[in-house]
Amino acid sequence: MNINIILAGVGGQGILSIATIIGNTAVKQGLFLKQAEVHGMSQRGGDVQSHLRLSDKEIAADLIPMGKADIIISVEPMEALRYLPMLKPDGWVITNTNPFINIPNYPDMQALMDRIDKLPHKIAADADKIAKDLGSARSSNMVILGAATPFLQLEMKDIEKTIHDTFISKGQNIVDVNIKCLHAGRELAEKK
């Protein structure tokens, strides 16, 4: 077993919350993990990515080679496309379609959606809206994580347990809504 994941987004969007949940679940299952993060200057509203590698054998490099990522998980639509050189030809893109616009030359939304539509293997949805309808706009990252779960070779139950452990200090309600969002994301993937 060997999974290479690129997590993408904009500094401040909290892509590391997704990485933490996948990572902690994987480690509990006894898998090896390497996770390269971006700290420092780029965190100030710039594009950020994290390389997350899971394996049942020891992992060599912290960085995924280009063309070797199995999935791109993006919390922002334009950022999903930035890492296409990293993706395997048959790799999947899972992305939020809700844009984070902090630059004057952000592309036309329709053109952007058309380009994402052309990707051969993708799951694209407005995770913000789904999370909001479920009662927590701030849990959109869990919707995206849910949509990625079929590709992770991790048990849903174990992921739920990690979400529980991560959020329980904030109360059972927060745990419940995050798990609801996770399942909503999973359903999106299963519809594909």
Binding site: M41, G46, P65, M78, L84
Partner: peptide, 27 residues
């Protein structure tokens, strides 16, 4: 890994190029 692959004479296999529609997002 790719730069080292090239140095070893092994194939480097980048995926699809970044689409033109992607704008730079500096900090």
């Amino acid at each position: 890994g790719n730069a080292v692959a090239i140095a070893l004479g092994l194939p480097s296999t980048p995926g699809e190029a970044i689409p033109d529609i992607v704008a730079p997002r500096p900090p």
